[in-house]
Simulated assay, not measured.
Amino acid sequence: MIGGPADPEDDEEQGRTQQGRLRPTSAGAITGWVVVGLVGGWALHPLAERFRDTAPIVTWAQPLALLLVTAILGATAYVTWRTVHVHHQRLDPHQAVNRLVLARACALVGALVAGGYFGYALSWVGVESELGEQRLWRSVIAGLAGVAIVISALLLERACRVRSDGDES
């Protein structure tokens, strides 16, 4: 059968086992989304001025909303860590999958958002404008909040890890 499932007996004969392990979110994927965000954020400034005659303003609501997401992810990571690693209780399978999916999605989107705000901040470097400096610094703060989302999401992903019977570390 082409493309069908492999026979487990064949895997055992060849010394392989199907363990169904997931790898952590790679640094390459996070870096890739940061780069996409940087380019998009940097391009937003000139494109918005060309087509809308004004660039978007960064208010305090954006970084505060990102910090709220960070706090929620951090609290979820803490609760998950204590449940799995301190109290040695297993999560329900659907809870574990939901938390892992949330962690991975937030890590990648947080990287995109961080890159976008840093790119937007870079587009204001050296520009003399009435609100240019304000846009630059608020974008930097929002970018740092995006980095905090990535960190808290990776902590949640790590909290979802369980030691298998074969792991010694």
Rank of each mutant, 00 (worst) to 15 (best):
M1H: 13
M1I: 14
I2C: 06
G3M: 11
G3K: 10
G4F: 13
G4A: 15
P5A: 15
P5M: 15
P5T: 13
D7Q: 07
P8G: 09
P8T: 05
E9T: 08
D10Q: 11
D11Y: 08
Q18A: 12
Q18N: 11
Q19A: 10
G20K: 10
G20H: 11
R21S: 00
T31R: 08
W33S: 04
W33A: 04
V34Y: 05
V34I: 15
V36G: 09
G37L: 04
L38W: 11
L38P: 10
V39A: 15
V39Y: 11
G41H: 03
G41N: 05
W42L: 15
W42S: 12
W42T: 12
L44H: 07
P46H: 02
L47V: 13
A48Y: 10
A48Q: 10
E49C: 07
E49F: 06
F51D: 12
F51V: 14
R52H: 13
R52S: 11
V58G: 03
W60M: 14
W60P: 08
A65R: 04
L66T: 01
L66C: 00
I72E: 11
I72D: 09
T76F: 10
A77Q: 11
V79W: 09
T80G: 09
T80S: 11
T80W: 11
T80M: 10
V84F: 06
H87Q: 15
H88S: 06
Q89H: 15
R90P: 03
L91Q: 04
L91D: 03
D92R: 12
D92P: 04
D92A: 15
D92F: 03
P93Y: 02
H94C: 00
Q95W: 12
A96Q: 09
A96M: 03
A96C: 02
V97M: 00
V97N: 00
N98T: 06
R99Q: 04
A103V: 00
A103Q: 00
R104K: 13
A105V: 13
C106Y: 01
A107Q: 00
L108P: 04
V109E: 08
V109K: 03
G110R: 08
A111H: 04
L112M: 06
A114K: 05
G115H: 03
F118Q: 02
G119S: 06
Y120M: 00
A121E: 02
A121S: 03
L122T: 10
V125A: 13
V125P: 01
V125Y: 08
V127D: 06
E130V: 10
Q134K: 13
R135W: 00
R138S: 04
R138D: 01
R138I: 07
I141L: 15
I141E: 06
A142G: 02
A142M: 02
A142E: 01
A142V: 02
L144H: 07
L144D: 10
A145D: 06
G146E: 07
G146N: 06
V147M: 11
V147W: 09
I149H: 01
I151T: 12
S152G: 05
L154E: 03
L154I: 01
L155E: 09
R158L: 03
R158K: 10
R158W: 03
C160M: 02
S164V: 10
S164Q: 12
S164F: 12
D165F: 10
D167R: 09
